[in-house]
Design a protein around this nucleic acid. Structure first.
Lengths: 166, 166
DNA sequence: ATTGATAATCTCAACGTTGAAATAAGAGCA
DNA sequence: TGCTCTTATTTCAACGTTGAGATTATCAAT
């Protein structure tokens, strides 16, 4: 089965036969997949009245374990967005009653963000269906292919220095 | 080598042992790689005074072959952004002298966008170094891993229906 | 204690995209 | 010829992110 990137690479091979464009077979597919999968996830979360970034914040706090709180900085690094974006997101989630801001007793520069009971209940309700939806999106891969794929992506991520979450 | 997604999955395994979060090993890595690679490409193109999206438009036109022109709609589908975004991008690239708008003689609703001589020269100058830069970013993979990775990503893209460019 | 450097967060103007509506033109059919 | 549906593009207000700067606090060294 040919995909959009096969066509793209065939065009380059015809127009610029002097170039070996093999990297596009990986870079182009990661970029296109990222966009397509984002759309799918957006649609899924909308069915729960959630924005995708809201779930990201909830999930980051949830998986950190009790008491389900992290500093703004940790959230900003986990989400790979600027600190200003996190301030904005937290403002809206506080207004929605999903999280609360708590001053850090050790470092008065820091703000800790904590799941409310409502936020905790919501993320625990959504995460199961979310993983099932992700599995549906990846159903074209058999178990062996999944492992190989995850392994190659891990190699790449690690080589780019993405080894911590914040 | 562990990466950020290994940590994330270990957290979920601890907090929600009832869930098998294997899909995150692929979905999470595609999302994080996409962001990291975007940053790298942005930096690369900046060294040529280009935005990433400008190169995307130039490259889409260039690889379509002479006379290096496509409709606005074809660009919009190839770039996976809304038609409004393409109008905006084309406005700025016309102002910069990289492309020109030409009425379509067959369909008066359509506008054809064509590379100027300057746009053609620029994309032909940049594409080689661009591919070399992409190869550098993927250097952690050996040739066999590259092929397997590209193959698995192709399977996924095709299963999501991404089989044409416009 | 004071100074200077570093760090955590917030603020805000600039920017680009989205999504929906508007405009205009082709296509099918009676 | 007139009607309706569809398609191609542009317009524009709303929205969220970025990137730089401001603020406040910690840390290390003296």
């Amino acid at each position: 089965m040919r995909d959009a990137v096969d066509l793209l690479m065939a065009q380059w091979a015809r127009e610029r036969p002097d170039l070996d464009v093999w990297p596009m077979g990986i870079m182009g597919r990661i970029a296109r997949l990222s966009r397509l999968l984002d759309r799918e996830l957006k649609e899924f979360f909308a069915s729960y009245g959630l924005e995708r970034w809201e779930f990201d914040v909830l999930a980051t706090l949830r998986r950190s374990g009790p008491p389900y709180e992290l500093t703004t900085g940790a959230l900003h690094r986990a989400a790979m967005v600027t600190s200003g974006a996190i301030t904005n997101r937290c403002d809206r989630m506080v207004a929605k009653g999903l999280i609360e801001r708590i001053p850090d007793s050790d470092d008065r520069r820091s703000i800790r963000v904590r799941l409310t009971e409502r936020g905790l209940a919501l993320v625990d309700e959504v995460v199961g269906p979310h993983v099932a939806n992700e599995a549906r999106l990846l159903a074209a891969l058999d178990p062996e292919e999944r492992d190989h794929l995850a392994g190659a992506l891990r190699t790449l991520l690690a080589s780019l220095g993405d080894t911590t979450l914040g």
